[in-house]
């Protein structure tokens, strides 16, 4: 396997590119599902690809796995072109697909044993079932498993034999909170063990909790990308309060809704002003920008999408817009 070094990776970090996408386009007839995106996923990180339905996430993943022919661009996964070296790629990667199924008459154990017999990676079926919390259901027919248990079985196939790269396409869709927590723990374990995880999700809190880097796709393009800190850096924090001067009642009190890129400084200024004037700040809240805000800004079009120009790792700093100001 060959690896590539990123030119702009910070010193001291893992710089192997597991996924290297340049100018990828995927079309369905005249419709452009993915429009010239750049994307890189580094070894050992959890990378979350976010976006609304139809943003192009699944088409991107399909192109990365060699399931979807690309209209333009280059894709390298684990040093291989997925359209050419499909089998070699499968041997080194695991996939949890959206809405995958199993033979209803099989059991988790027999399904995993089949998978084991087809795989060049060696592992222990009982241990893997134990790991995903399905050991106690190993001999139950698949058709009798719950939706969450089927997802766990899907995950068991994906992690079989510790692949270098695991692709999780909306892994927690349909999972109850407990199963979701289990999956989150497992993803962290995998990352800690050196596995690279590329995931898509609709749950922004999931990306915030798990991902080292994120990219938000919109209408086939990557709007913003980078570490969570990078993505949020350009979005203003918010300070809200009800400012009541001495003698004022709740009706005449002033609503404060401040958007700022300097949360600490402006919060301090607000507090100092209140101290000086004797104002009371009711319901004072200071919240940094959230991924959800960024996401909604992308969907609203406040953040302009980029096509081929900057790589996903640097797009955040070049495309994010700012909006600062205070209201009454």
């Amino acid at each position: 396997m060959t690896t590539t070094k990123t030119a702009d990776a910070p010193a001291g970090t893992t710089t192997d590119l597991v996924v290297d996408v340049r100018g990828l386009s995927v079309t369905y007839g005249a419709f452009s599902a993915v429009d010239g995106i750049d994307l890189d996923v580094r070894r050992g990180e959890v990378f979350a690809l976010l976006g609304t339905n139809g943003a192009g996430k699944t088409s991107t993943l399909e192109a990365l796995q060699g399931f979807r022919r690309r209209a333009a661009g280059s894709v390298t996964v684990l040093g291989e072109d997925p359209m050419i070296s499909t089998r070699r790629l499968r041997a080194s990667s695991g996939t949890m697909v959206q809405e995958a199924g199993f033979v209803p008459e099989a059991t988790p154990l027999s399904a995993l044993q089949l998978w084991a017999s087809l795989s060049s990676r060696v592992d222990d079926a009982d241990a893997v079932l134990e790991r995903v919390g399905l050991a106690h259901r190993r001999t139950v027919l698949v058709k009798d498993l719950s939706g969450g248990e089927k997802r766990r079985l899907d995950l068991a196939l994906a992690i079989w034999g510790a692949p270098e790269l695991i692709v999780l396409d909306e892994p927690t869709t349909g999972l109850d909170p407990e199963s979701r927590a289990t999956l989150w723990s497992l993803v962290r374990e995998l990352r800690d063990g050196g596995t690279t995880v590329l995931m898509t999700t609709h749950h922004l809190e999931e990306a915030e909790a798990l991902a080292d880097r994120v990219a938000i796709m919109h209408r086939g393009r990557i709007a913003v990308a980078g570490t969570l800190a990078e993505v949020l850096r350009e979005r203003p924090a918010r300070i809200t309060a009800v400012r009541r001067l001495p003698g004022q009642d709740a009706v005449t009190a002033e609503q404060v809704d401040l958007r700022t890129h300097h949360l600490q400084r402006d919060l301090l200024a607000l507090l100092t002003d209140a101290e000086r004037t004797g104002a009371v700040l009711d319901q004072l809240r200071a919240t940094p920008a959230s991924l959800e805000e960024v996401f909604h800004a992308v969907v609203r079009g406040d953040l302009h999408t980029t096509s081929a120009a900057p790589s996903a790792s640097t797009a955040a700093s070049t495309s994010a817009s700012t909006s600062e100001g205070a209201s009454r």
Partner: peptide, 8 residues
């Protein structure tokens, strides 16, 4: 356990 893999 970080991994249960046993090689290739």
């Amino acid at each position: 356990t970080t991994t249960t893999a046993r090689g290739r």
